[in-house]
Amino acid sequence: MNNSLKIVTACVTTSSQLNFLKFGLGHGQICRIHNWVRPVRYVLRRRRKVEYEKFPERAKPIRRSAFNDWNYRAELYAFGKRLGEEFDEPLLNQALIDKSYIHFEKRRLEELGLDPNSIQLQDNGELAERGKSLLEQVLNAFMVKEFPKLPKEGVEAVVQSLTSDPILKQVSLLIGTKDIIQCQDYPPSDQVYSTAFQAIVGALEQSSGLERVEKFILDVVASHLCGKDIHDFWDIPKPWHMLLDLTRPQGKTLEPRLLREAGKNTLLSVYVVGIYDENKVLMGTGVGETIDIAQEMGARDVLRGMFGTKTPLAPFHFQTDNFPMQLIPHVR
């Protein structure tokens, strides 16, 4: 390690490319990786870093559509086929045109001395609006169906975080919109990704109808909930107060009791608190490093039982009719 570092430093200072080969590092290899690989990559990476600091514009990735092997219509066709959906091509095209692209094109035409109003393009704003309301409706219905006991604010919180920009960006990227979104900046910003995805949902509704849209949203967006805890999306800040508010109308009186304790007055103290109702039935338990925390955790446990969000959850019901894909290569 030290040896190679010294040699690499020497290499950088003299800026001769493969000097270290002369110093006896050339023949050995460890785990089938030659000893020269690391120092070479070290040097290349360092040079790249220096260059990018000097010329920041070179660090930007080149737009994929600027390459020779690019056919936009073929990409649009494949996009629909990949998702297993039938899109109306002009609608899909419109769904992928961002507002910034139209401004950009108009400015370009102006610079060329042409009439900027000659381009007849429509951005994806309207489609995105429709798509957003569709997303919210479908996810709401899904949450109500899967968690019938969850209160309204919980459902809203989950739907809101599922339709937030970071998550929709991830979805949008992973269904392959990165290169086909038409916008000014490349790679697109989170907001552009998410708007494009909403617009795709809107375009799908107009192309294939509501039923397909519902399946699409469940498969692509709602599947984000798999293996996750609902309370990661909806945090309850004061569980004990909430529990009291919920049980008061039923005339229940709750009683927290200390079940076990260990390591009192030490750094590693543990308390277990159980929450009992008036019939001395244990409703839930919580563990914490102080009695207060344990009581709050116990209240959380009771609330989970009341809302039907206890972990582990039973798996959700998703459609699987699009699944049969040929995974074994077979061309003949």
Binding site: L83, I175, D179, V220, A222, S223, C226, T320, F323
Partner: peptide, 14 residues
């Protein structure tokens, strides 16, 4: 994207 839970999306783009 939890591929295969809802539907299977082939990952090879081009």
């Amino acid at each position: 994207l939890a591929n295969g839970v809802g539907r299977y999306i082939p990952q090879c783009l081009r």
